[in-house]
Design a protein around this nucleic acid. Structure first.
Length: 344
DNA sequence: CGATGTCAAGGAATC
DNA sequence: GATTCCTTGACATCG
């Protein structure tokens, strides 16, 4: 089982995730791919075998007013093939998670058309890289527009019209406020789309009171036997927040402690929560990969790996982590980050 | 150089 | 119908 992280690598200085220049300055997919190539080298150096690419690596690739950008996938054909070969050589699983603007269940047909065009481009990038079926495009169902059920219906209707290139890559994730695990399971039954389980979203949004272990098993079962499923895992942010608030009776303002915002992602993954999840919620007989969604990104992954070695020696083998990998003196990565921050 | 404004894009709550 | 938040970083411009 692999541990992965999303987009921005923090553990080594100078790594960028995409060419984010404004259109006036001619950003290009080829530049983004050169950045990813450097990230892959870093991932290999630290033994990370799963990575979510930025969804913005091909700048303005479908922008209606900037047609000069629309040819970049063709222009980067050789670079795409090379980066795909490199990822496979290093055994790094890749994925993408298109932004919130991709809405397949919108009541606005024009927006659906634009969204599909973006997904076609993303699928084409992975295809040109030559990636296998485990390189997926993760999306959410979309908006509710006041009516949940019709929102699901529209998603299914759009799915049925998707080109095969997108259908082969598209997977659906339960979200934190709108479409629950039960909702996406129902969409799976109607479409066959593979599902990505998100533990934090499940805990935030489970009005059907489904059992987590059963739900996870159902999600994993949506993947074919020969493709390793993936899930998202994160811990809730527990930042201590205070706000200025006016007292209704006295009219005076005072500093008030606020409850945590549970849908936020914590900087790191809580080790005991993760280990408990793998021990007691995950099926022992079906492996899956874990995309960590922590603000500290790869640094959180490296920290979790140490924590698994130290506190979860029984589950460590499932992740290929040597039990003796834990070294109490080895806080190198975190220390480097601290020094970099202090030096600036 | 540091501070501030801006970026293609949606959804939803609030007023 | 318009405004603001969500959330996100980093580019780009300004002083």
């Amino acid at each position: 089982m692999r541990l992965g992280f999303a987009v921005k690598a923090l553990g080594r200085e100078g790594l960028r995730s995409n060419d984010a220049r404004r259109h006036q300055n001619g950003p290009h997919l080829r530049v983004s791919l050169s950045y990813i190539s450097e990230i892959l080298d870093y991932l290999n150096d630290v033994g990370i075998r799963m990575y979510r690419m930025s969804s913005d690596i091909a700048p303005y690739i479908t922008h209606p007013d900037l047609p000069q950008f629309h040819r970049q996938i063709d222009e980067a054909e050789a670079e795409l093939e090379a980066i795909g070969t490199k990822a496979r050589m290093l055994d790094i699983r890749l994925s993408m998670h298109p932004a919130q603007f991709i809405v397949l269940n919108s009541p606005d047909p024009a927006l659906v058309t634009k969204s599909v065009a973006d997904l076609v481009a993303a699928a084409q990038i992975l295809d040109r890289m030559g990636m296998g079926p485990d390189a997926v495009l993760v999306v959410h169902v979309g908006g509710t527009y006041g009516d949940h059920a019709s929102g699901c219906d529209r998603w299914v209707a759009t799915y049925e019209r998707l080109p095969d290139s997108v259908r082969r890559r598209l997977v659906l994730e339960n979200d934190d406020v709108r479409y629950s695990a039960a909702d996406v399971l129902e969409i799976h039954r109607r479409t066959g789309v593979r599902l990505v389980f998100d533990n934090l979203h499940f805990n935030c949004n489970n009005p059907e009171r489904q059992d987590m272990r059963e739900t996870l098993a159902q999600f994993l079962a949506t993947w074919p036997e020969d493709v390793t499923p993936k899930i998202h895992f994160s811990s809730p942010e527990t930042n201590f927040r205070t706000v200025e608030r006016r007292d209704r009776k006295t009219g005076k303002t005072a500093t008030t402690t606020m409850p945590p915002v549970w849908i936020g992602h914590a900087d790191f993954v809580h080790p005991f929560e993760f280990i408990d999840f793998v021990r007691h919620t995950a099926p022992p007989n079906r492996d899956f990969d874990v995309m960590l969604e922590a603000k500290a990104k790869d640094v959180a992954l490296l920290r979790l790996r140490q924590d698994i070695a130290r506190y979860g020696p029984d589950i460590a083998p499932r992740f290929g982590i040597a039990v003796d990998a834990f070294d109490p003196a080895d806080d190198t990565i975190v220390a480097e980050i601290g020094e970099a921050a202090a030096g600036e």
